[in-house]
Design a protein around this nucleic acid. Structure first.
Length: 425
RNA sequence: GCUGAGUUGGCGGAGUAGUCAAUCGCACCUGACUGUAGAUCAGGCGACCGAAAGGUCUACGGGAGUGCAAAUCUCUCACUCAGCA
């Protein structure tokens, strides 16, 4: 009998939205749910009791980072991820597959940043050939130059080297050569010991054409099977990852393949636009079994939550809440001026908030909004006080978790579309 | 009072005859941020015109000189600091 189970409690009548519950030995998770990202076994600036207080039910850490520091063996000896970070609840680890690309490739091309929704440029060095010959050659040379000169890059970019069995790349900490493959990733994730783990996947560049993307997907599928094969523990739930870029038939193939082999399904990838992202979900979800949890990897802005849930997704994780929080970009509801155009955020550092006595969002019940004015929070950021970044991250994570909770309640009460209308118009 | 050093944009601090509206920090203003190499990054920051490219003007303590040309050299005044009286 499975130790981790997922059940759908209620389905929306008009959309694919659904509410469910995931049961693990460490506690239950109600869906739709936002999973705060704690890459290095820490949700940046936030303590576990604060996460609990705002309704977080699960946190995500990253295998790549924990492998480099402190090492999966340390985490294991310290009692596993949950005990190590004193998080009394379910946990999840990402496989490290994504880092192979976010690290081995690069993040910016001049003013263009490599993110999910801009014109992405990924360095794909499959034959260890010169990077200039790779995708988008016109920009690549200056791109590598500029990226290498970024302040926080202490070493020149060394692109990841991909082969059919795995990936060789270089530590961002000390430049040391690292090797990941499905077996290694799963072994590390078993040692780290999260309840939910992710199969080791390959990651296509959004710039690639069909054939290249297809080859990448075949690799992901093969690695997925190898990940399953490498699994020794029986108390962890492994997500398979759907890929296939922006090609409908590849995504559908991948969705079917993943549903066939895995008990939990994640959608991965990078997208050239939100529209592409939503289309991809639309293509895939019809091929997912009802009783399997569905995770949209790395995506969870306000609008994405509605759009993802509407299309049938259950779990969302994203660094945006914590990162934006640290950077002073705070979520606000439509009543406070939040809209698609501003990603439902405001910049608390703007001078117009200096004398503002209102909370960040009057409708928000988080600790920050209950106790502090915009003027004070503005001051904390300006003064570079750590408390400011904490209050910001706290508000943002609370905001998204609470939004997921509202969405869940709306589904349970048959008014999902009403809520969506109120937010997205 | 004598001797020496200094006075540059909101602040600190480069420059020491032309390529200087003036390097670089800080502060300030505005953006960006989606499986976190990010408590980060990018742009702006004398005035006026311009969407921009660019243009015009006023600036390196005050004043007076030398030079084709001065933040940079000379004289002088003011102020600051250090040592000696």
């Amino acid at each position: 009998m499975a130790k981790i189970t997922f059940t759908v409690e209620k389905k929306d009548k008009k959309t694919r939205a659904r509410a469910g519950i995931l049961k693990t030995p460490h506690g239950v998770v109600h869906t739709p749910m936002f999973i705060p990202v704690g890459t290095q076994a820490s949700v940046k600036t936030l303590a576990p009791d604060e996460l609990k207080a705002m309704g977080a039910e699960i946190v995500l850490a990253n295998t790549y980072h924990l492998h480099l520091r402190p090492g999966e063996d340390v985490v294991k000896k310290m009692g596993g991820l949950s005990q190590f970070m004193s998080w009394n609840g379910p946990t999840m680890t990402d496989s490290g597959g994504f880092q192979v690309f976010s690290l081995g490739s690069a993040q910016r091309a001049g003013k263009k940043k490599v993110t999910k929704f801009t014109n992405s440029v990924f360095v794909y060095d499959k034959d260890a050939a010169s990077v200039e010959e790779l995708a988008n050659p016109s920009e690549m040379t200056s791109f590598i130059e500029k990226v290498s000169q970024q302040k926080h890059f202490t070493k020149r970019i060394k692109p990841a080297k991909l082969d059919e069995e795995g990936v060789t790349f270089f530590s961002h900490l000390d430049g040391s050569k690292q090797r990941f493959d499905p077996q290694i990733s799963i072994e590390m994730q078993e040692k780290i010991g999260a309840d939910l783990i992710v199969a080791f996947d390959d990651h296509e560049s959004p710039l690639w054409e069909y054939d290249e993307t297809k080859l990448s997907l075949e690799r992901t599928n093969r690695w997925g099977l190898e990940s399953l094969k490498a699994l020794k523990r029986d108390d962890q739930l492994m997500y398979g990852v759907v890929h296939g870029g922006m090609f409908e038939d590849l995504r559908i193939d991948s969705a079917q393949f993943t549903d066939k082999h895995f008990s939990a399904i994640a959608i991965g990838g990078s997208y050239s636009s939100k529209e592409t992202l939503y289309k991809v979900i639309d293509w895939c979800v019809p091929f997912f079994s009802d009783d399997k949890p569905r995770h949209l990897l790395g995506i969870a802005e306000v609008a994405d939550l509605f759009e993802g849930v509407k299309r049938g997704m259950d779990f969302f994780d994203c660094v945006a809440a914590t990162r934006r929080g640290r950077h002073g970009n705070l979520y606000i509801s439509p009543q406070s001026g939040g809209q698609k155009k501003n990603n439902f955020t405001m910049s608390i550092m703007n001078s117009k908030y200096v004398l503002d006595e209102n909370p960040i969002d009057p409708l928000c019940a988080c600790y920050t909004c209950k106790n502090f004015t915009r003027g004070y929070v503005n001051h904390l950021y300006k003064a570079d006080e750590a408390l400011g970044k904490r209050l910001g991250a706290l508000h943002n994570v609370h905001f998204i978790i609470n939004l997921a909770k509202q969405i869940r309640e709306a589904i349970l009460e048959d008014r999902f579309e009403v809520l969506e209308q109120a937010w997205l118009g």
